[in-house]
Amino acid sequence: MLISSRDPFECRETENLYRLAVNLNNNGHAVTLFLVQNGVMPARKSAANRKFAGLIRQGIHIEVDDFSAKERSIMEKELKKGINLASIENIINSLAKGTKTIWH
């Protein structure tokens, strides 16, 4: 699980995390990208970020922290196709299962 907490429009380094997700996926690993805090911003339908769009094309599983979305007035219907709101409990589930979990 990769946790993305930064807005790629503010922090270009975030795109390195997206690249890591793509590389892990290409190497046969199951990858979940969990968006939290300002990391949720590119999940909006209206947000255009080519690197983020590439994640969706690759079929990488993307979840959006429901609390972070609510704080920013982002409703589920405003998310890009295939991306859903999720509870932060999913991060704890991932940790408890022993899944390698990286914060960025």
Binding site: S5, N38, I88, E89, I91, I92, A96
Partner: peptide
Amino acid sequence: SARSTTFFRLLNVAASRGY
């Protein structure tokens, strides 16, 4: 930073589960 808030939210989930 919002990081400390998220950190407390994570701890709350884990503590509520008795971890």
